[in-house]
Every structure is written in C-alpha cells, then in structure tokens.
C-alpha cells in the first residue's frame, strides 16, 4: 500500500525582499498504484512542490500537511523521508566527487533497508539495474554524477529508483534535456517501477512528450502555485494542442 496525501500545502522561500510564497495551497492525493502527472509552465512552482515534499532546507512550509500512508512526512528529516519510502529524482542531480556510484548505491540501500544488502545478489541487482538503463557495469566505478552527460544523470536516477524501491517516486522533470532514445529508456525505467505492486508516481514535466510512454492516471495542470485543473489523459492532449494560455489567463484574472 502507498498513499501520498498533500493537503493545502503553502511554501515560501527567503528572498532579498523577505519571504515569497511559491506554493499557495496545493492539494492532491496519489492513491495506491497511481501515476499522476503534474504539468505547468516555468515558474509555476512544480519543482518547489517536489523539493518541499522531499524536505529541501531552502523551502519553508507555512501551512498544510503531507502524509505518506498516514504518517506525517513534514515532521521527518530529509533522510527519514527517504527511509519512509519517498524518492525524489532530481532535475539536476548533484555531483559528489570521489564517491563511487557503487559505494553510493550500497550506502543508500543499507540506510533504507536498515541492513547491508547481501553482497552476491546485490552486485547482480546493481548490474541489472544499470543494464536496464543501458549503463555499462564500469559505470559503478565512476564518481556520482561527476562528468556524467545529461542523459547519464537521468538514467542513473532511474537506476536508483529501481534499486532503492520506494513507495512513492517524485520525478522532477526527469524527461527534460533528453533525446528521444534516452527518453524511451528512462520511460521504460519508470514503467518497470510502476509495474510493481502499489507504487505511486508523481511525474512532474513541462512537456507532454513523456506521457506517450508513461500513461498517467491523473493529469494536474499547475499554475501559479496551485493545481488549476485536474483530469484524465485528455487534459494532456488539450495542453498539447492549446498550451497553458487558458490556465495562465484564468489564474491571472482570479
């Protein structure tokens, strides 16, 4: 079972002119086994939502709640959230020089499971996950994200998703900057994860392109720090045809 409930979430960041509200009351609920897509124009607060739920210190939650299977996520530290079953695939994964992918994956897996993985099966699992992302086994000897191409970074994020096996994955523009081949590989990674029992996915994207490969159950249009409209896959088709204009204007006149 996995259910992520975000209720009336308000988030601000510190700026030179004082705190600025980015999320203005976000409510959405991802049920057991569901995939939700969040689409919105630049600056609408999509990434802020992802980072706030993951607990990035830059963002201050001023109101609202986030529950994962009924547990208060906002009361947890960043690493506790991950251990509770949340995973954030980042738009710009961070370089950690001198720390090998292999060491990183093992350390993360150990932290999440509370015990070290069995060496024999683990190496096989890692190689399998890398192989699904068409990454060579030698990839695991490289430093985390250092010198990776844009596509390698995203495929590395998906390999982590595969191995760490969270309850709910938040994918922040995992599709951006990818050519069509890399997009297909990454989409296969997401679908491989979704095929498991009861996994939730919150897919944040700027483009409808990825939705041809990863079919969402629900599409939310995100404008000006709020969910402006929710619907099925047909909403994505409307966005594809007409863009965000209708929603942006509605938000501006609201």
């Amino acid at each position: 079972m996995s259910k992520l409930e975000i209720k009336d979430l308000k988030v601000s960041v510190e700026t030179e002119d004082g705190p600025k509200e980015i999320l203005k009351g976000v409510t959405l609920s991802i049920g057991d086994g569901e995939t939700h897509a969040i689409m919105g124009p630049n600056g609408s607060g999509k990434s802020t939502l992802a980072y706030s739920v993951a607990g990035h210190p830059k963002y201050t939650i001023t109101e609202g709640s986030v529950l994962l299977d009924g547990e208060d996520v906002l009361a947890m530290s960043v690493d506790e959230r991950a251990r509770a079953g949340l995973f954030l695939a980042m738009q710009y994964p961070v370089e950690v020089p001198g720390v090998s992918v292999s060491n990183f994956l093992r350390t993360a897996k150990t932290a999440i499971d509370g015990e070290a993985p069995k060496l024999r099966t683990w190496v096989k699992e890692v190689n399998g996950a890398l192989d699904r992302m068409t990454l060579d086994p030698s990839f695991s000897q490289r430093s985390v994200n250092e010198g990776f191409s844009g596509g390698e970074k995203k495929r590395h994020e998906m390999a982590q998703l595969d191995l760490l096996d969270p309850k709910v994955a938040i994918l922040d523009e995992t599709d951006s900057g990818l050519d069509i081949d890399a997009l297909k590989i990454v989409s296969e990674g997401i679908n491989h994860f979704r095929a498991r029992e009861g996994k939730g996915v919150l897919l944040i994207t700027h483009y409808t392109r990825i939705l041809r490969y990863v079919q969402p159950d629900v599409v939310h249009v995100f404008v000006d720090g709020r969910v402006a409209e929710s619907g099925g896959a047909e909403l994505a088709e409307e966005l594809e045809a007409n863009g965000y204009d209708r929603f942006v204007k509605a938000a501006a006149s609201a």
């Binding site: 990035h56 690493d79 991950a82 982590q160 760490l164």
Partner: peptide, 11 residues
Amino acid sequence: QLFYLRSRGVP
C-alpha cells in the same frame, strides 16, 4: 551534496 545523499536515505 548533503541534500542529495540524504534524499537517498543516508543519515
């Protein structure tokens, strides 16, 4: 860097 590692469950 710390956030990235912690977001993977690492204390």
